[in-house]
C-alpha cells in the first residue's frame, strides 16, 4: 500500500469530515430557518467531498476496509484533522468564525491540489472547489455582517476570531506524509499558502471593521492525533451508529 498517500488523503479528508459533523449539529438548531438550511447544506457538501477521499483511501488500503470503516471506526488518536475544525459551535459567531478561518485555507489548498500529479486527487479538488468557493463567500459575508453590524454582534464575532486564532497556524504545518507527497508532486506545500491566507483573512476582517489578532501563540497537535477535549464527544456522536450497529447500511 502507498502508506504516505493514504495518510496524506486522511489528512485532507479528516478536516472536512470533522467540520461537516460540527456544521451538521446545527441541523434543526440554526438561528433561523434560512441559515439552518445554509449550514446544513454546507455540511452535506463537505460530507460528499469526504466520501470521494475515503473511497480513494479504501481502494489504496486494499484490506477490505470500506469508506465507512475508515471514516467512522478509527480511534481518536488516529484522526489527523487540525484542532480548528473540532472546536464547538459555541454560538453563531464561533460557528461562522471557525468555518471562515477554515474556508480561506480550504480554497487556497484545493486550488493547488487541482494541479496534483495524482489524477484522482486533482479530479476531487476540481469538483470540490466550486462548493468551497460558495462556502467562503457565505462565511465571509457573515463575518462582514456581524463585524459591521451592531455593537453586540461585533463584540461576539471579534471574540470568536480572537479565541480561534490560536488554531490557525497549524493549518500550515507539514506532516511526514505531506513532505513525501510534495516531493512527488502529488501534495500541496501548505507552508507556501500561509502568506496568502493571512492576507485574505486580514482583508475580510478589515472590511468587517474587525481587528486582526496579533497573538503569536499557537496551538497544535491535531495533525499528530493529539486533540482538544471536544474531540471525544464529537466522535461519540459521529461513530454511534456504526458502533451500535456494525456494518449497518442505509
Amino acid at each position: 500500500m502507498k502508506q504516505n498517500l493514504y495518510n496524506y488523503i486522511l489528512g485532507i479528508a479528516d478536516n472536512s469530515l470533522i467540520l461537516a459533523q460540527r456544521m451538521g449539529e446545527l441541523c434543526g438548531h440554526g438561528p433561523s430557518l434560512e441559515t439552518d438550511i445554509a449550514c446544513t447544506n454546507i455540511s452535506l457538501d463537505l460530507f460528499g467531498q469526504v466520501r470521494s477521499y475515503f473511497q480513494y483511501a479504501s481502494k489504496l488500503a486494499g484490506d477490505g476496509r470500506t469508506e465507512d470503516d475508515i471514516a467512522m471506526l478509527r480511534q481518536e488518536r488516529e484522526y489527523v484533522n487540525v484542532l480548528l475544525v473540532e472546536q464547538p459551535n459555541t454560538d453563531f459567531a464561533y460557528t461562522i468564525a471557525r468555518h471562515f478561518l477554515f474556508d480561506v485555507y480550504h480554497l487556497l489548498f484545493l486550488t493547488e491540489l487541482e494541479k496534483s500529479k495524482d489524477l484522482t486527487l486533482s479530479a476531487i479538488a476540481k469538483k470540490c472547489i466550486k462548493e468551497v468557493r460558495y462556502h467562503e463567500r457565505f462565511t465571509s459575508d457573515w463575518i462582514k455582517r456581524l463585524g459591521d453590524g451592531t455593537a453586540e454582534s461585533k463584540a461576539k464575532i471579534q471574540e470568536a476570531i480572537n479565541d480561534l486564532w490560536t488554531y490557525t497556524d497549524e493549518l500550515f504545518h507539514q506532516t511526514g506524509a505531506d513532505k513525501a507527497m510534495v516531493a512527488e508532486g502529488i501534495g500541496v506545500d501548505v507552508t507556501k499558502l500561509k502568506e496568502a491566507y493571512y492576507e485574505k483573512v486580514n482583508e475580510v476582517l478589515t472590511e468587517a471593521t474587525l481587528e486582526t489578532p496579533e497573538s503569536k501563540y499557537f496551538q497544535k497537535g491535531g495533525k499528530k492525533g493529539i486533540h482538544t477535549e471536544h474531540m471525544g464527544y464529537l466522535l461519540a456522536e459521529l461513530q454511534y451508529m456504526q458502533r451500535a450497529y456494525p456494518n449497518m447500511e442505509w
Partner: peptide
Amino acid sequence: LQLRFQIQIQIHM
C-alpha cells in the same frame, strides 16, 4: 456602507 449595514442588520431574526 457602514450606515447601510447598521440599518439593515437587525439581530433578531
